[in-house]
Write a protein that binds this DNA or RNA. Structure first.
Ligand SMILES: [Mn+2]
Ligand SMILES: [Mn+2]
Ligand SMILES: [Zn+2]
Ligand SMILES: [Zn+2]
Lengths: 145, 145
DNA sequence: GAAAAAATGCAAATGAGTTGCATAAAAGGC
DNA sequence: GCCTTTTATGCAACTCATTTGCATTTTTTC
């Protein structure tokens, strides 16, 4: 999804050592058109590398912890992971199909929150926010006229 | 949360028979200040009634299916349930504390999406949407100056 | 290069939510 | 009311994404 992102620098900038596996995970997420599940990342990695499922979870956890990757919740019981918003990638909303589980990135212009996180008045300190539209994607529509 | 809601009518209006258990669940959700987990609903019910955990899940499922209750996703791996937006209860965003798991309803005025669900251009038909601010609530703040 | 620290692998556990099937309660027909 | 059919609930077992514990590499530090 981005040629301008130097993933090594991105990771080391937040104090995460750039191992082969971690770099591979971040590249996969960076090239993905939509946020992926841990399983999808795992499968993508297995294609040309031997890696353990647990390691994938731990890497994703680190990247999320470092703020490089976003962990996105859905209507099913798994999470999706994608590049976190940064200078090159503005925050954006997602569409989630409750039938096939596909999660789609929406253009950043639409559905942005009209605020710079006005914490005063809120019940806590906001670290991130999520806007998710749920429904049924066109592929899954029963009848398409 | 609401004295104007006739829960029996609400349920039967969407074709859900109002059994004792179902009514109790809906009342608990209606009186709750924040969306609850299935476990919390179960515990609240157990206080003055014998009921099975699975039944709670099935009742919540029915109420969600009927559109009376909203199933809200979070940063942990469980869901919260609350009254679905209706004439008396406008859609609103939520704040989720990643430390204690508390989910708080935010005033409907703030953080509403500027749209009436403009499906054209979207990857599917939108049925609902979620706005969730994630962070750490004041109670969980490590140092409060 | 040896010791310490960090990353990875493997097996087992966790836990919210689900499924299958038995029983109880409610609804319909007479 | 009484019998039949449908729907709701209970109980036990299961699912499956994620986590945990601990052993084994791999990397870093000295
Ligand atoms: Mn995205
Ligand atoms: Mn709410
Ligand atoms: Zn779909
Ligand atoms: Zn908290």
């Amino acid at each position: 999804m981005c040629e301008r992102c130097n993933y090594e620098k991105l990771m080391e900038g937040v104090g995460i050592r750039a191992t082969k596996h971690r770099l591979a995970v971040l590249r996969i997420l960076g090239n993905a058109p939509s946020p992926m599940t841990a399983q999808e990342v795992f499968d993508a990695l297995k294609a040309d590398r031997s890696i353990n499922r647990v390691t994938v979870y731990r890497i994703l956890e680190s990247l999320v912890e470092g703020g490089v990757v976003d962990k996105i919740s859905t209507g099913d019981r798994s999470f999706r992971y994608g590049l976190a918003p940064n200078d090159n990638h503005p925050q954006h909303a997602h569409f989630y199909c409750r039938l096939c589980g596909l999660m789609t990135c929406l253009p950043p212009e639409s559905f942005r929150l009209p605020f710079g996180i006005p914490s005063p008045g809120l019940p806590g300190v906001v670290e991130k926010y999520e806007i998710r539209l749920d429904g049924v994607c066109h592929r899954c529509r029963p009848e398409k006229s």
